[in-house]
């Protein structure tokens, strides 16, 4: 069923548009990378703050609360551009190991961000164990780096 969805997606009007219009795929790829940079900024500025590496003289809650909005915006852009890119090479992606690694990491990253990290960071940070905050930050950075790295490797294989 999943395979037939991927086949259908590639033959859909969207898939045909992405494949047939010369620079469309490359342009969407570039927008995807810009959104990745914004997501990277929002994740790293918050997580490095939680690890006491940057902006140590700014309350961590101020940094994380501000960054979450841009995290959500960039994530939406990444998901939309990612889906459009997928439509052009859906069958290839279905058979690509790194695509599924990326999807697993992405699902884990989203679930972790919205169901673990965000609810935890909404609380008063002074009441939280500093080690818990650091572990959450390390897990968050690791997940998003895994998403980005596995995404790049899709292009190197298959």
């Amino acid at each position: 069923m999943i395979e037939s969805f991927f086949s259908w997606l590639e033959t859909s009007a969207l898939g045909a548009f992405v494949k047939d219009q010369g620079a469309t795929f490359a342009t969407i790829e570039a927008v995807h990378l810009m959104a990745l940079a914004v997501l990277g900024g929002s994740v790293l500025v918050s997580d490095l703050r939680l690890c006491n590496v940057v902006l140590t003289d700014v309350p961590s809650k101020t940094v994380t609360d501000n960054a979450h909005k841009y995290f959500k915006i960039s994530l939406i852009v990444l998901l939309v551009t990612g889906f459009v890119m997928l439509s052009g090479v859906a069958v290839k992606c279905y058979h690509n190991f790194y695509y599924w690694v990326k999807m697993a990491a992405l699902a884990a990253g989203i679930l972790f961000a919205f169901f673990v990290r965000a609810p935890l960071l909404q609380r008063d940070h002074a009441e939280l164990n500093p080690m818990t905050l650091k572990l959450v930050a390390l897990a968050s950075m690791s997940l998003w780096f895994l998403v980005a790295a596995s995404g790049r490797w899709i292009g190197f294989s298959g």
Partner: peptide
């Protein structure tokens, strides 16, 4: 491929921080 991956991953740090400053 790892050099290229590192080049792209560092974009999250360098341009990520730059975008925070610019915004």
């Amino acid at each position: 491929n790892w050099i290229e991956t590192t080049h792209v991953l560092t974009l999250m740090l360098s341009l990520g921080m730059l975008f925070v400053i610019d915004l």
